[in-house]
Amino acid sequence: MTIPSSTPLLALKGISKQYGHVQALSGVDFQINRNEIVGLLGDNGAGKSTLVRIMSGVEFPDSGQVFRDGQPATIKSRKDSEKLGIETIYQDSALVGSASIMRNFFAGRELTKGLGILDTHKMNAIVMDILVNMVRISGINSPDILVEALSGGQRQAVAIARAVYFKTAMLLLDEPTSALSVRETAKLLEHLAELKREGVSAVFITHNLYHAYESCDRFTILSRGQVIGSLAKAETSVRELNDLIVKY
């Protein structure tokens, strides 16, 4: 079966989510197309992270539907989202600080020699290969370094390298640049562009509209749990995006 390239990779329809009295999302439609970086924008508390958590299977919507390549799908757990090719880099918890790079890289997807015994040797080799050759992070010379000893940028790079290695179709990045220096941010945006060239789609959440405008193809704007606009890069500008977010 061939899927027309116009069918969205992932489409969410009428997603609602309530936390107690807070209506975090109400009837949200959202989609990720092939080979596209979507900027998910909106003020604090707009519901961006909630939407990401729903797509990655750690939260469940109260109502709404999910389609992968036009086919109905369910995301009930992290395993489900992994099967759909979704990988997430969280605002607050992408990696476990007290564990090593390698152990984070393969967290939950460890390679074993059978009987549940880790194939440490192989995993170390893969990690080093990816980090050195693909993502090109400077200053990392061992897979045994604890993640807490890495800078914010290096951490994001490890998380991205992980997405690359596991052939993710869609990468969800929730404020990846919030803790990064100017240089590290530039590097990250470069990684994003590279990912796109490799055929990975991405959702990029940021409060920095310049970064968003520079790297995204399309923008979806949330306000108090509702979508108030979805614009292609060609038909908008930083200024318009800014006005939209501020106005609501």
């Binding site: 757990s77 992290r78 918890s93 476990v96 007290s98 564990a99 939950g108 074993t112 549940g116 015994i117």
Partner: peptide, 20 residues
Amino acid sequence: KLGNHFYLVGGHEKTAIAVG
């Protein structure tokens, strides 16, 4: 593998859940 999960869960449970 299970041992690795012990560390990840103890290190940051939310992240461990997030990776499945």
